[in-house]
Design a protein around this nucleic acid. Structure first.
Lengths: 262, 262
DNA sequence: TGGCAGCGCAATTTCGAAAATCCATCGCTG
DNA sequence: CAGCGATGGATTTTCGAAATTGCGCTGCCA
């Protein structure tokens, strides 16, 4: 295996944003970046990405009122693109819309967390099964790269660095590389949306990288099973991986339940 | 069983719109209706409902360009609420948004149809299983009512009346009564969205009620299995029901594939 | 003192116009 | 004559202000 070439491909793939899912950044997307990758960005889509990222990162807290006065000064744009973004986020369950009374960040609750965990597990495991059955060589290569990339950034035990956007992106890339060949755009979109909701819980419950050291090993095992076409084993490993993480998140949620903020 | 009281309850339940899913009407929702049922409506939500209904009914054809000039005159409102509605519909896969190039009705294709069918079947059957396990008496009563209501409006064989909004609403009400106790808001919302997409295909493929006479019997059998708590049997009946219908839709689609319109 | 109607402020929602972008056409150049 | 860049019109996108709605306060009345 040509190590240098391999690394280069991985690095390049990390630089390229994963269409509309990954760019989690608070800074506005640069126009030239958008154009370079064949996708035009508007203020609306920027608003969508930035607000979602800030919700997932916990900068906008669960239950927080999102007044337009506040948003206009925060994100430096008119109400129209903001409203558009909030509407889409409402459809994804990231914000709540009460007619004539504005928007607020979707509150957190044990019931919602359990719902999110159950749906994410079911959808992602199902998609993984399809993907492993249907995946071709390009998919296998991409999965290998994503897994390796995650290994490279994975924390050592005891690492107290906070989880940041880069870590999130690489982590997310692995999970979507795994299910990317499932063949169903609808299922993929559902997985994207539910994972954003899940990530918010995980991100608030597990702010530092230390706890996420174990998953690197999980990812490698899942990758191995997936690449060898053993979909049953990959699915059960994935289920264990998701359950383990969900257990930690649930337990932490139960202890220090986050309060809505007004 | 008190027949008159039963009928009255069913009729009443039919008059009440099923929150945001059912009101499929081209006329704007009356304000007093909105207030009466504890939900305020805005022009945006009206636009959402009306446009979605028109897409499902085929009045807005697959692939059709949705220019604001056209929409503003059609729906008699400004661009803001229309834009908001279109954004949400884009998130639900009913319209496509190409940045800076406007909106168009989501095109139809065999691949999309197969995706929609597969996802609808998987999600709805899964939800039905959960619902039957978790449902309480209120759920059973509601399911019985919905099934009976559908029986009452179901067509006799050879009925050439076109499928209208009322038929759609009662049909939809049955399917959601079945899965209503699944316990997962997220899963329910997914089922709602995917069913709208599926309904569009079915509605264009099967414009008259005649073909939909068989399903009434299916519904009764499914209800019976569900009410007796036999989730496995209900699921397999539901699967057969969905597969049968999907087969007809697919076959008709294949014969007379609808062309995009500009 | 408790309750309710009316009033005024603040916030959302909607509109109409300005700005930015795209597309087709035309003219120029090699 | 083909290819490329500029120009004009049409459309989308965004903004700022008007209109509408909700909410809290005050004052009146029982």
């Amino acid at each position: 295996m040509d190590w240098a070439l391999n690394l280069e491909r991985i690095v390049l793939s990390l630089l390229r944003p994963m269409e509309d899912v990954l760019p989690l950044s608070v800074a506005p997307t640069m126009p030239f970046v958008a154009h370079d990758f064949g996708q035009t960005f508007s203020k609306s889509s920027d608003a969508l990405r930035r607000i979602r990222a800030d919700i997932v990162a916990g900068k906008l807290q669960p239950g927080q009122k999102l007044s337009f006065k506040f948003l206009v000064t925060c994100y430096d744009m008119g109400t129209s693109p903001l409203r558009e973004a909030l509407c889409q986020l409402a459809g994804q369950g990231m914000v709540e819309l009460e007619s004539q009374r504005g928007f607020r960040v979707a509150p957190v609750s044990r019931a919602d967390l359990e719902d999110v965990i159950a749906m994410r597990a079911h959808a992602e495991i199902y998609a993984a099964g399809l993907s492993i059955t249907r995946g071709n060589d390009a998919w296998r290569r991409n999965l290998g790269d994503a897994s390796l990339a995650f290994t490279l950034v994975a924390a050592k035990a005891g690492d107290q660095r906070p989880i940041d956007e880069r870590w999130e992106e690489i982590h997310r890339r692995f999970h979507f590389a795994l299910i990317g060949a499932c063949g169903s755009p609808t299922l993929l979109q559902f997985c994207k949306q539910i994972s954003h909701r899940y990530d918010r819980y995980r991100r608030i419950a597990i702010p530092v990288q230390a706890v996420m050291a174990g998953p690197a090993q999980d990812h490698r095992e899942i990758t191995q099973a997936a690449l060898s076409g053993n979909s049953k084993q990959a699915q059960s490993l994935l289920r264990r991986h998701i359950d383990d993480m969900a257990g930690v998140v649930l337990e932490r949620y139960h202890r220090g339940a986050w309060m809505p903020k007004d």
